[in-house]
Design a protein around this nucleic acid. Structure first.
Lengths: 158, 158
DNA sequence: GTCAGTGCAAACTTTTTGCAACTAC
DNA sequence: GTAGTTGCAAAAAGTTTGCACTGAC
């Protein structure tokens, strides 16, 4: 299953590159492969290090930035913008999910909700062709709630 | 109405500062006032220039960054992360809305949808205390669809 | 052979930080 | 008077860009 997904996305990339007059460089396929080996979200720096360790392929950060743009355009990667650096995740056969982001520690957790997915899916927008969406729910995770309560109590008891 | 909102948020800020042992500096009130004069989203740079022109108050960017953190913590400002720089908007008495973001030109439009708002509002999350959320729908706005079609046609006709 | 793509380093942008001066309390 | 804040400038972090070299076509 995993390998067949990788084959499929390689094929999609090939078609995309051909259709848009881009070259089929080994870097692009290596980057795509590595991305589809990562399960959750990643940023450029993480991907950079993953490339060498997991993918056994050294590329420059510049190439990663360049390639990511192509992959997003080819609908193979989705870009997120929580935290300080851009986060990405694979797009092909990646189940729809939403994000809970802790405003204290920055931790990102995913969750699924069918009702919500259907509600969002059925929206009709005027003058806009939707391709994908991101729902970020901000709040405080249970760990940080505990930490914060401690802190508050300390202040109060001063 | 506008002025009463400003009074109210000033009061909320005062309470927040007092409760957390922060000082009531003129900078903080001037920044809050300027923010509540801005209708849509803004980034730090926009706010910086607005402060001088609209608010007649000069503050450093560092102070803006510092103050924004407080205002977010006081639930008076919401932070977004589309585009290259962080975007903000007022939180108090700001109607719930969702965002359409054009992946071509970066334009951000807002829309409202009751069904959706209720669906999101009724979600129960485990081990997470939600405070607010952001729904970003990515796609292509009508202007860019037209521009893109032209471009594609040009390539094809080469 | 040609030109898109790559690697590298420098440049740029946004945000954070250190420190002296200032001021709310 | 003192410690929290501010302004400034330097530093940091993430991303983009210019340019020479490389390799896909």
């Amino acid at each position: 299953m995993e390998e067949s997904v990788k084959d499929k996305v390689r094929q999609i990339l090939t078609e995309y590159l051909q259709a848009n007059g881009h070259r089929k460089t080994p870097e692009r396929y290596a980057i795509l492969d590595t991305i589809y080996s990562i399960k959750g979200h990643f940023d450029i720096d993480t991907l950079y290090h993953y490339m060498e360790t997991e993918g056994n392929f050294r590329v420059s950060r510049a190439t990663l930035y360049n390639t990511i743009v192509l992959l997003i355009d080819a609908n193979l990667v989705i870009k997120h913008q929580f935290g300080t650096s851009s986060q990405f995740e694979r797009a092909y056969r990646n189940e729809t999910h939403h994000h809970m982001i802790c405003t204290e520690c920055g931790q990102v957790a995913e969750f699924q909700n069918t009702t919500l997915r259907e509600a969002i899916g059925s929206i009709k927008l005027k003058r806009f062709t939707a391709s994908h969406y991101s729902l970020y729910i901000y709040g405080i995770c249970s760990k940080c709630v505990k930490a914060k309560n401690k802190k508050t109590n300390n202040i109060k008891s001063k």
